[in-house]
Amino acid sequence: MDLNFMIQILPRLLRASLTTIQVSLLSLLLGTLFGLLMGMIRVLGPRFLHPFVNAYVTFVRGTPVAVQIYAAFFLLPRIGLNWSLFEISVFALTFNSVGYQIEIIRAALQSIDKGQHEAAAAIGLGKWKAMWLITLPQAAQRMIPPLTNELANLIKASSVLSIIALYELTRAGEAIIASTFRYAEVLILMSILYFLMIQSLTEGSNYLEKNVFNFRTSRIKTRKIKQPAG
């Protein structure tokens, strides 16, 4: 093991990791946006739209991400979109992520107690307003752990983008291996970087879940504190 060599290639790999993080985070955010939209349609929207959403989910979950990436790479230019490699990559991963996020969001929305909808309807809130004001804020906290999982999956899936030559961590590592043949050092360093990325994101999400999106638990806490006084 040549430590000097590892230190020498570290900046190159770190720069490539930045691309990995950018692509994964962007795809997660865009994916959540479209996922929320389609997830809400799946729960509340008109019935004739449900089969389309379901077909989309089945397609994404039933085909390998490599095939989806190739499809984006070959077909987007075909329909006249001259996007950069980075944009194509974000599109492909978003397309993939939406399919998984719809199910996450649907499950979270449907896990909220029915009484909440009924109470909202009873005080005269419309279907969509009740969703926006009552159900969604409560479901947000329950979405965080599976969405973290999804982000970890996206980071891992982003390594597949190396097949269309996006210069992210795996591609950078492969390029270094191809020019120096020192695969042990490079592969170990790559593994460590991926591991650190995924681990730190998990920690970040635990923080989000406990400290930012805890509307429900904080209310329960206040109630508990008030009880002995009253």
Binding site: V160, I177, Y194
Partner: peptide, 22 residues
């Protein structure tokens, strides 16, 4: 288990591909 779940499959393929002959 943590290692396998925490790194991309592609990286593991490369490791197997390069390490086995070694």
């Amino acid at each position: 288990v943590n290692y396998i779940r925490g790194t991309p499959q592609l990286v593991q393929f490369l490791i197997v591909y390069f390490a086995l002959p070694r």
